[in-house]
Design a binder for these strands. Sequence first.
DNA 1: TCAAATTGAGCGAGCGTTCAGTCAACTTAA
DNA 2: TTAAGTTGACTGAACGCTCGCTCAATTTGA
Lengths: 206, 206
Amino acid sequence: MEKKHEVLTSIKDESLIEKRRHQMIRAGVTLFKQKGFHRTTTREIAKEAGFSIGTLYEYIRTKEDLLYLVCDSIYHEVHNKLSQIPLQNGTTHGLKTAIRHYYGVIDDMQDEFVVMYQETKSLPKSALQYVLTKELEMVDIFQSILVGCKQAGELELTDTQINLYAHTLVVQGQMWAFRRWALGKEYTLEQFTELQIQFVLKGMGQ
Amino acid sequence: MEKKHEVLTSIKDESLIEKRRHQMIRAGVTLFKQKGFHRTTTREIAKEAGFSIGTLYEYIRTKEDLLYLVCDSIYHEVHNKLSQIPLQNGTTHGLKTAIRHYYGVIDDMQDEFVVMYQETKSLPKSALQYVLTKELEMVDIFQSILVGCKQAGELELTDTQINLYAHTLVVQGQMWAFRRWALGKEYTLEQFTELQIQFVLKGMGQ
DNA sequence: TCAAATTGAGCGAGCGTTCAGTCAACTTAA
DNA sequence: TTAAGTTGACTGAACGCTCGCTCAATTTGA
């Protein structure tokens, strides 16, 4: 896929490619979150994007390519937003801030998260590997914050706990995306966030 | 579907139906786990189950019915195992036992859980509603245990917290199924379980 | 004028589903 | 005892249809 796109890039109009790609991704996310990847037809995607199937296939090789593009754009956006977090390493206050930002991203991109995690399996093997790597990167962000808190003496944690708790933090955030159908009836994002922060910090021994 | 099965039940040999249903579910889970619901053909399912497509369609009406059967069997087993828990209502010790049992089920039925949560969207609307109901039932089990602990004075929780924590307990268990690719490298089920119990009880204020 | 971009009818592989037919096991009745 | 009749689980070729993908024809715009 990479190769092909490079080749295309050198032939076709660069900005047009970018424009079309955006249209395709937007259309893809919209439809995948409504009906899932497999129930969405290429014809529908093209229509939603505002052009014909023929044109669609000028910009992707296969339908799976589009799913990959969608996943990739999600990670880019998540990474963007998370890298804007004001870093106060080594303090539980910094940890709280990170959690709030993370929960914020998940709230903003609810649909995208659901699509990504639910359709991940439909990706070809190599693309799947890429997604798992990205997932671990997210765990690593929290892990290094926890390490900071430990070194600063703010939290007493074994290495074993640090790793597990980092996963727990990531998962408890995803909970907001996947269980909104139930949680949304009881809590606002703010309530949910503060309750979880309270719970998690207490659980870690603060 | 319900109607149909009742009718069939009275005509066909009861135990044979049960046997075939088991074969189908096993085959379904195996293949869905490998390739996902949509990539698995009915022919493959029949072959894996050890009979022909024709026979397959003697026991289900549609391919979706099979997905429904898979989900349903999971909930039955979870319910079975959780109802066998020696009830010591109102004690955190009882809560710990419940968590251990729940984690045990998830470990046993890893593949089934992953399939269920990943393919849920492919269910027809009414079946989806049923699955969500069952999901809430699972939350309710933990919720009532927590209520017991509160009434016995073993945990101090607001109603708001009780509901959220019940969800958290359910989700943290699922974590073991969905993140085994990462967690399995670091922990055994026992280690994971005890660490999570410790974390969760501390977070709830014990 | 002509290359780039776009179109959508068309292709055909592959899918879920059906159903006419088979056969082993069982029942009936002479 | 046994031949004829009945049952229903089982089979797999066949059917109708969907949908990813192609490409000859057309439009666009420089």
